[in-house]
Simulated scan of single mutants.
Amino acid sequence: MSVRALVVDPSASAAVRLAEVPDPVPGPGQVLVDVSHASLNYGDLNDARSGRIPVGAVLGSDAAGVVARAAADGTGPAVGTRVVALAAGAFAERVAIDVGALAEVPKGLGLARAVALPVAGVAALRSLRAAGLGPGKRVLVTGASGGVGRFAVQLAARAGAHVIASVGSAARGEGLAEAGADEVLIGLAGLRRPVDVVIDSVGGPQLAAVWSLLAPGGSVQSVGWTSGEPAVFPPYATVGPAKSLTSFVIEGDVGTDLALLTELAAKGFLTVEIGWQGSWDRFDEAAEALRGRRVSGKAVLTVTSEGPRTPMPSPQGQG
């Protein structure tokens, strides 16, 4: 048996193509999920070209769909449960996912919006938490029009921070004030007072610039590097009152954080903006739009099947 998936292929225009791959075989603590939606992250595009994901391997991290087979060890959601997950190889019709890597999607939240939450939402939530977010803190979010940025703006505002959103153009800043930004800046123009927290997804020269704006005791969380440019710090820039630049990566189980994010989204406390949506057959188009920074918020792929999928029998003891 096989399923269709988006796999890494350096010869393809976006280094990704649709292909047939073996049906996944779940471990005892994994569920099988029939995927209906996937979310494309900037990191996925880098993974396809950098060699981090081997040629022929399935790409992706964000998936949402319905549980087709419950976990053999009795943990996790039952068959038929709508779930969202952060899992390696997410861009496939059917994926085996650790029960700690997913959360049930609440009623009232569509899967197309839920699937935008795993990488971007968890990165925003955990980086703010690691930086010491609190009421009254001055929080700068760079690349604020992107997936991580928009979630970070909303979560920081909800925590009572003074939020400064940095974007590349006036058009990219649309909707950020409504999302909770107290200030919306083009680049760093007009930013004079020090900030306590920086959530940076741009990197390059802007990373060096925000370091100089960081207050003593402050924290820069480096969650991305969309500029693709080096960051050059002037001499003695790192000599002075203590402050930190911290690399960031999502590690460990994310189920609890995903449950929180989906609950906030279902209740309307966290807005999910989808700037591009279409069939995964149009992956090249989505990738080009994301690389060209023409997507505000998230790019969502609809996983389309060529035919009915084979029903999965429940493991022994699961009914």
Rank of each mutant, 00 (worst) to 15 (best):
L155F: 03
L155R: 01
L155T: 00
L155Y: 00
L155D: 01
A156E: 02
A156Y: 06
A156D: 04
A156M: 03
A156V: 05
A156N: 03
A156H: 02
A156F: 02
A156C: 07
A157L: 11
A157Y: 09
A157E: 07
A157M: 10
A157P: 12
A157G: 15
A157T: 11
A157F: 08
R158T: 09
R158E: 13
R158S: 06
R158F: 06
R158Q: 06
R158A: 05
A159I: 13
A159Y: 11
A159S: 07
A159E: 14
A159L: 08
A159T: 09
G160K: 08
G160Q: 08
G160A: 07
G160F: 10
A161G: 00
A161H: 05
A161E: 04
A161F: 00
H162K: 14
H162V: 15
H162M: 14
V163Y: 04
V163S: 06
V163L: 03
V163D: 03
V163T: 06
V163N: 03
V163A: 03
V163I: 01
I164K: 03
I164V: 03
I164Y: 04
I164M: 00
I164R: 05
I164T: 01
I164G: 03
I164D: 01
A165F: 11
A165M: 08
S166A: 15
S166P: 10
S166I: 13
S166L: 14
S166F: 09
S166W: 07
S166T: 10
S166N: 12
V167S: 12
V167A: 11
V167T: 08
V167N: 12
V167L: 08
V167K: 09
V167F: 06
G168V: 08
G168H: 07
S169W: 05
A170Y: 04
A170V: 12
A170F: 02
A170E: 09
A170W: 04
A170R: 12
A171C: 11
R172Q: 15
R172M: 10
R172I: 09
R172C: 10
R172K: 15
R172S: 15
R172Y: 09
R172W: 10
G173H: 05
G173W: 04
G173Q: 08
G173K: 04
G173F: 04
G173I: 06
G173Y: 04
E174Q: 14
E174M: 12
E174C: 12
E174I: 11
E174P: 13
G175D: 05
G175V: 06
G175H: 05
G175W: 05
G175S: 05
L176F: 07
L176W: 00
L176D: 04
L176R: 04
L176P: 03
L176Y: 04
L176C: 03
A177L: 13
E178T: 15
E178N: 12
E178Y: 13
E178H: 12
E178K: 14
E178F: 11
A179S: 15
A179D: 15
A179G: 08
A179C: 15
G180A: 00
G180D: 03
G180Q: 04
G180P: 02
G180M: 01
A181K: 01
A181Q: 06
D182Q: 13
D182W: 09
D182G: 15
D182C: 08
E183M: 10
E183R: 12
E183Y: 07
E183A: 11
E183F: 11
E183P: 06
E183D: 13
V184Q: 04
V184A: 02
V184P: 07
L185P: 11
L185T: 14
L185A: 14
I186K: 11
I186A: 10
I186M: 10
I186H: 11
I186F: 05
